[in-house]
Amino acid sequence: MSDLNKLPELTSDYELTKEQIQEFQEKGHIKLSQVASSEEVGVYRSIIGEKVKELNYHNKPIEERDTYGKAFIQVSNIWEKSAEIQRFVFARRFAKIAAELLGVDGVRIYHDQALFKEPGGGITPWHQDQIYWPVDTDNFITMWMPLVPVSEEVGSMNFANGSHKFGYISKLAISDESQKTLSQYIEAKGLEVENYGALEAGDATWHYGWTLHSAPGNPTNTMREVMTVIYYADDAKVIEPDTNARKTDLQKWLPGLAPGDLAASKLNPILYKKNV
Rank of each mutant, 00 (worst) to 15 (best):
Y14R: 00
F90D: 15
S156H: 02
K171Q: 14
S38Q: 10
A245K: 11
P8W: 01
D13R: 12
K180G: 15
V276G: 13
P8C: 10
N56S: 11
G260W: 01
L4E: 06
A99C: 08
L115I: 08
V52M: 00
W210N: 10
G122D: 07
E40N: 03
P216W: 03
A98M: 00
G162A: 11
G103H: 12
E23F: 02
T124K: 04
Q113N: 11
I47H: 12
E152P: 01
G121I: 03
I109R: 12
D129G: 07
H58Q: 12
L55T: 07
H29L: 03
N5I: 09
F94E: 08
D129V: 15
S46H: 03
T142Q: 03
L16D: 02
N158D: 13
V150A: 03
D105T: 12
E50S: 11
K70P: 05
S2V: 13
S156T: 07
A258H: 09
P216I: 07
L199I: 00
L115S: 11
L101T: 06
F94Y: 13
R92S: 09
H127D: 08
R87G: 14
I186P: 03
P255M: 04
K171V: 12
A98P: 05
S178G: 14
S170C: 10
S38V: 10
K237A: 09
E153W: 02
S37I: 04
A173G: 11
K266S: 13
P216S: 14
P146L: 01
M223A: 10
K18L: 06
T124C: 04
N161P: 10
V104R: 04
Q74I: 10
T11C: 11
T17P: 05
N5D: 12
F116S: 08
G69P: 05
E177L: 07
A264N: 14
Q179M: 01
H164M: 01
V41L: 13
E200Q: 15
D203V: 02
K51S: 07
R45I: 01
M145H: 02
Q22Y: 06
D138V: 15
W126Q: 04
G162V: 04
V107S: 12
N77Y: 14
L10C: 15
F72A: 14
K81E: 15
T124M: 06
M143P: 05
D261W: 03
L147W: 03
A71L: 04
A188E: 15
W79P: 02
M1K: 13
F90P: 12
R224V: 03
N161K: 13
L10F: 06
G209A: 12
P134C: 15
E100I: 00
T11S: 06
S82Q: 12
E23H: 08
Q74F: 05
K96C: 09
R87L: 10
S214K: 00
S46T: 07
G69S: 12
S183V: 08
Y196D: 05
K70G: 08
Y208R: 07
Q179I: 04
A71V: 00
N59H: 05
R65D: 05
D3N: 14
L147G: 13
N218S: 13
S178Q: 00
V135R: 02
L212E: 06
I141K: 04
K273N: 09
I169N: 04
N218M: 00
E152D: 13
S265W: 01
P119E: 11
E40F: 01
E9I: 07
H164C: 02
V43M: 04
M157L: 14
